[in-house]
Simulated assay, not measured.
Amino acid sequence: MKALIQPVRLDDEKSELIVLDQTLLPGKVEYLHLTTQESIWEAIYKLQVRGAPAIGIAAGYGVYLGAKASAATTYEEFVADFNQSKDYLASSRPTAVNLFWALDRMAKRLETEKDQSVPELKAALLQEANQILADDETVCQRIGEYGAELLADGMTILTHCNAGAIATSGFGTALAPVYVAQDKGLTISVYADETRPLLQGARLTAWELVESGIDTTLICDNMASIVMKEGKIDAIFVGCDRVALNGDTANKIGTSGVAILAKHYGIPFYVCAPMSTIDIECKTGDDIQIEERPGAEITDMWYETPMAPAGVKTYNPAFDVTDHRLITGIITEKGILKPNYEESISNIFALV
């Protein structure tokens, strides 16, 4: 399966990180050309690049570009410049583990190359960032293949937020099984939650599915219950930004509610999670820091005039945690994990 779109890429000759600006979709397809650490930080924070894998890819290339600009002549000076970029980019989003995973992976590569010259260090970091992108392509393909085994011709799935091609290297996680099934000639339909308040389902998932020729129905978040009750949903596939050791998963706000409904109606609920999103140091979902975003995303965004009274208090958590007891399976590139998750996660890491 070829990548459907390339949301994050590097133009090394121009020292530019090129990202699809997801805040403009579906009305406008525009790519940002980012040349400074500040602009890369802002693109991650403002969700111009979003989705755990895509954030990791952007972070890898971003810290490389920061290091590339270093005028250091010694390893120690170069590491100091690298760490400054690394720490700065790490402050952009607190919940998505791929951000820190990618930055730590780049740091480990730098450590292994400590006997090399500064030009060789820069070349090694570029190679590692390219490998992060290539690895994600492989990971998403495998998640798609494992997930497609759970699908049959004529099935309809429901998804929340966007864990598609534009959130990754171009294949998707939660939507990868749909694309793989489509490649195999199966007809799979998708119900997409709009995903308030940033409308990733309405703006992004619906856009890329329609562009790919997938039968797609957009619903408001509060309509998930009725479509399940009416028997319109055969399975639920969602992505995630972090998986705890016990199988609790953090994903876009509203995901836990979908999982509770699925449990009530007896519908299988699958989380598609690259191994890089599994944080074995995080014991349970209680240990996951939840990002809270500006209240204006609820009261002002998408409206010509504010839709709420001035001065009203807001609470805008970007993620919630789905209890492991609500999850039928976690689909990784190494296979489908089943409860007991602490045991299955521990076992799969032992094989890595």
Rank of each mutant, 00 (worst) to 15 (best):
K14P: 05
G62C: 08
E343I: 01
D135E: 15
T277P: 00
G231Q: 10
N316R: 01
I44L: 05
K2P: 15
I188M: 09
V227E: 13
F78T: 03
L126E: 14
V210G: 07
L218R: 05
I327D: 10
F237V: 01
A124W: 15
N246L: 03
S189C: 09
E149V: 02
T159N: 12
E208M: 01
T159A: 08
E333C: 00
I253N: 07
A174P: 07
P339N: 03
L103Y: 07
A259N: 10
G311H: 12
Q200V: 01
A273R: 00
R50T: 03
T205A: 09
G154P: 13
S212N: 13
I298F: 06
A318W: 09
T36E: 15
E77S: 01
S39I: 01
T314S: 02
E137C: 03
E304H: 10
I236N: 02
T249R: 00
V190L: 13
E149F: 00
Q127M: 14
P7Y: 09
N246Q: 04
I345C: 05
G295F: 03
W207Q: 02
C161T: 04
E30V: 03
G285Y: 12
D234I: 00
A52P: 03
S189R: 11
M301I: 11
T299P: 11
G164M: 04
I290K: 06
V63W: 10
T36G: 08
A67H: 10
A181Y: 12
I253T: 10
S225A: 14
E291G: 02
E120R: 01
T23Y: 10
T168G: 05
K108V: 10
K86D: 09
K46S: 11
I219W: 11
Q131Y: 15
A59Q: 06
L198K: 07
Y270P: 08
A350R: 11
K86P: 03
A202D: 13
F237G: 03
V49Q: 06
A58R: 02
I226G: 01
N246E: 09
M1V: 11
F349G: 04
T216Y: 11
D183M: 01
V29K: 09
L337F: 14
D323V: 00
A69C: 04
A192K: 02
D215N: 08
I348K: 08
G170W: 15
V321S: 08
A181K: 04
G62R: 11
P177R: 03
A206Q: 11
H33V: 00
V79W: 15
A80T: 12
Q289F: 04
G254W: 12
A224H: 10
